[in-house]
Design a binder for these strands. Structure first.
Lengths: 352, 352
DNA sequence: CAAACGATGGCAACCGTTTGTCATCGGGTT
DNA sequence: AACCCGATGACAAACGGTTGCCATCGTTTG
């Protein structure tokens, strides 16, 4: 028996259905309310938007009648005149990357709290479709949060010129940004490893286009210098499980007893492949990731990682965004630095 | 060259700000294009929407000029008149649940391909905020996909009356739905376990409000009867890692050698807790999940699971939705059944 | 008692597109 | 030469709210 996937449309529908429902009744407008209440449309409008502007009694009556009729203000009509759509866009490189989960959550919650709706656009790691998505959504929204944009700074500026914008995990001079404190986070990781006796660390690099990758590597490098460590770096990897797996070879080729990976996905992939090759983590090598994504606690072994305040990042970004949305003139804050926190699990241990 | 648009009496804002940027230039409208091209606005409009309706030459000229000026049609103005917003909403119970990743991806891709933008709304497992989200988004969108709605059938019908709607993982008589073939999937899991010698299975139940939970349990129960198995069921659990952990106690209290969990999250949580209590999986108990979410392959042990065609589900739902969007009269298809597939990994093994 | 005033509500002009309807025009028919 | 016709483009009326401005009215103030 075959699985019926697309049952064809049934053509007899029209005639049959016409009996059940008489007509698609168009929803009541402000005119209907005005007529029913015996006032002008302007009064109805103001009863909602400027409660002080009309007599309290009148306003109450209008609202009651609107309620009865089932009136709901048409957001498009409002937007046409005011420009206020109550829509915000959050552009993420990849919705399926757990890194964005809590960011989305935080952003959405903060937006909803202020009466805004979040439009989440997934651009599948491509600058091209990111531009496309912006084209589509920019005219609709009042503000923009770019989480890990893959576009150039100048493309971002173009967008930022059109709508208030906040970027995440990337620092720009003329666009407000929110980043986690990668320097401190990285240092915490290094100190943790040093405390366990490690004297040599390999960094598994992420995408070259990543601003954050640069920061993490540089800090690691500096810290290494200061503390007299031997620090190495692999070739850039895609920030995925597969990227991590394919870095195993390079890692095993080094004598480093500790590995710091660009992010958790990479770290988890690496652990998998190391295990497959008979290398024990943390017995033979210690592994640290970044971000503390979903899964970092139930992979094997549970991952020691520099946790990013993902949810707070999303929420904070929206907060900053909303500050700008009202004002005519764009406000650029200096980068907000959110604290990172080292979470020690079982992928790190004493050096061999 | 300046195309003087509509000179809206702009009382030259504060002098101070005027230094940085001259003025927030309002984007060009159809009027600007019309004037520049020396035609009426209707011609401009039709040059885009009804290319056949105007002289090909004129149309080309208009479009060229529009391009030069940087004209983009204002979606709100269009929507106000036509009702077409090119927006679809996908309501998910929990964006941070990996179950939805590929559904979102599939839906978004299918929507984008047809020129629609997906609005993803997270309702945090609450019927209350689901209603709220619908209130906010319903007037904006042309169609609705409800993935695992937590609302009652009647609430769903109310929404479906206002906009074309497709529900996922739930079967309703008068709303189009897309579900995975849970019956076959469940049977496959049971047969797999029986093949390994298990004669007694415990089902770790999911939320009572879940339609899918009912199907899975009933099928499991039936299959048990037919095959002469001993089948038990735990109390309902939240479909999360924690839910899985807290089910461990109940599972250990049974003599069942195999466990089928409502979903992967539950299964993974259960495995964790079993491990913590010294129970070996699959040595002492075999565990099967549902859905094959992100993480099912790298948890410990990698999970045997009934994989749902998540991406196809999302895409298919949008396909069905878009069929209805054009038509005035709602079309209800019968439920589309998408095939499930058993993925055997290492959480199942021979019965003790 | 007149002038001034604050509160309140209505009028009408937008916001930017779409689209039904109508006028015009050049050309082909008869 | 009268007529009809298709093609093309302009006019103007929506779509559903918002808001600046004015008229009215009952009060307060000098």
């Amino acid at each position: 028996m075959a699985h019926v996937t697309t049952p064809p449309t049934r053509p007899e529908e029209d005639a049959a259905a016409a009996t059940s429902e008489p007509a698609p009744p168009s929803p009541p407008t402000i005119y209907d309310v005005a007529k029913a209440a015996g006032v002008a449309t302007s009064t109805v409008s103001r009863a909602f938007s400027r409660p002080g502007r009309v007599n309290a009694e009148t306003a109450a009556r209008v609202r009651r009648i609107a309620e009865e009729i089932g009136y709901r203000t048409n957001p498009m009509a409002r937007a046409l005149h005011t420009g206020r759509t109550s829509l915000l866009a959050l552009v993420v490189a990849d919705v399926t990357n757990p890194f964005f989960f809590e960011i989305i959550r935080g952003a959405e919650a903060a937006a909803a709290e202020k009466g805004y709706t979040m439009l989440v656009a997934d651009v599948q790691e491509s600058a091209e479709s990111e531009r496309l998505a912006l084209d589509r959504t920019l005219p609709l929204v009042e503000g923009l949060v770019l989480a890990t944009s893959r576009m150039s700074d100048s493309s971002i500026r173009v967008a930022a010129k059109q709508r208030p914008t906040v970027v995440l995990n990337r620092v720009m001079t003329d666009v407000t940004s929110v980043v986690t404190d990668n320097r401190r986070g990285t240092r915490a990781a290094v100190e943790h490893l040093v405390g366990l006796g490690h004297r040599s660390i390999t960094y598994v690099a992420g995408p070259e286009a990543s601003w954050v990758d640069g920061v993490r590597w540089r800090t690691l490098h500096e810290a290494g210098q200061e503390l007299g460590l031997r620090v190495r770096r692999t070739a850039p990897q895609a920030p995925t499980l597969d990227g991590g797996r394919s870095a195993a070879q390079a890692v095993l080729a080094t004598p480093s007893t500790a590995v710091v990976a660009y992010n958790d996905l990479l770290a988890i992939g690496l652990c998998q492949e190391l295990a497959a090759r008979g290398t024990d983590v943390p017995g033979d090598r210690s592994v640290v990731g970044f971000d503390d994504i979903f899964g970092a606690d139930f992979c094997s072994p549970p991952l020691t990682t520099v946790a990013a305040p993902l949810r707070a990042t999303g929420a904070h970004a929206v907060g900053l965004l909303l500050e700008q949305v009202g004002t005519r003139r764009p406000v650029v804050h200096r980068p907000a630095l959110l604290p990172a926190r080292l979470v020690v699990r079982r992928s790190t241990g004493p050096a061999r």
